[in-house]
Amino acid sequence: MVEPILSVRDLRTQFFGPEGVVRAVDGVDFDVFEGRTLGVVGESGCGKSVTARSILRIVDRPGRVVGGSVMLRKADGSTVDLAGLTEEGMRDIRGPEIALVFQEPMASFSQHYTIGNQIMEGVRLHMGLDKHAARKRAIELLDMVGVPQPSRRIDEYPFQLSGGLRQRVMIAMALACDPRVLIADEPTTALDVTTQAQILDLLRQLQTERGLAIILITHDMGVIAEMAHDVSVMYLGRAVETGSVSDIFDRPQHPYTTALLRSIPTVMAKPRTRLPTIVGSIPHPFDRPAGCAFNPRCADMIAGVCDSAEPPPTNTGARQVRCFLHGGRP
């Protein structure tokens, strides 16, 4: 059996606000393998982005990772728990081991420095290159992600680039120190459909070339189907169903996954029919339902069971699901 490169277990992140504690990530488990893509999917506010930030421990205050483990297998085969590293140790992980690509390429760049400056910064810090060598590498990186005229573009500012180019530069910046895990947090949400396809192609191509492990965060089931090998469906800070994409798309087990898949429009559908939606809306984070968090919106809710106890993770083969319909009933 192939060892995962990144193994997240029971990750928990909470925000300590003046009105109370929000459990943004509340028990997330998944494995990421070399050369494979794990899709993390869920509605807005389900804790996808916070999960990404929790792995790198860059959650903004008042948020804090409060529990769980993030085991990273290093290139030499040794494993290290990122949750237990010092802040200094963590800095050597960010960039050379795990890198992030963000949702909004405009806001995620500083407008006060050239893209070259922002790419070279990590290269110089982690790879110890001098200015000249770092610049050369930055130009190569820009070329690799398909930025035309990289030696000229390198001296431009982010606001001078188009949205698609900015996202390419963002990917170049993430890959600057040869990370083995790339977390892409809704990398195509802010882009138009054509550019979106180009960026996804680029990610796939880079994965094949470098054996990158990718965590792709999105709310778009279509992107998951196209890109991911494995998928983890999140609801209210919890991974409710995890498994291979083909398994889950063919035979979803958790009612939430089923509902999500049903709400994707298809070209086969009869025109002018209403798309199925999930009843209700995501509960307010302070107002978390007792038992399974999905029970108020669930069609198959078992009264007295789903609203009183939390379903434990149940494994069947490579699939893990948290639902009383599929085991774990008290």
Binding site: L56, I58, E104, A107, S110, L125
Partner: peptide, 15 residues
């Protein structure tokens, strides 16, 4: 300090 580019900088491993 709340802007996304600060997170980007942290994610690069800067102090």
């Amino acid at each position: 300090l709340r802007k996304p580019y600060v997170v980007t900088a942290r994610a690069k491993g800067l102090s």
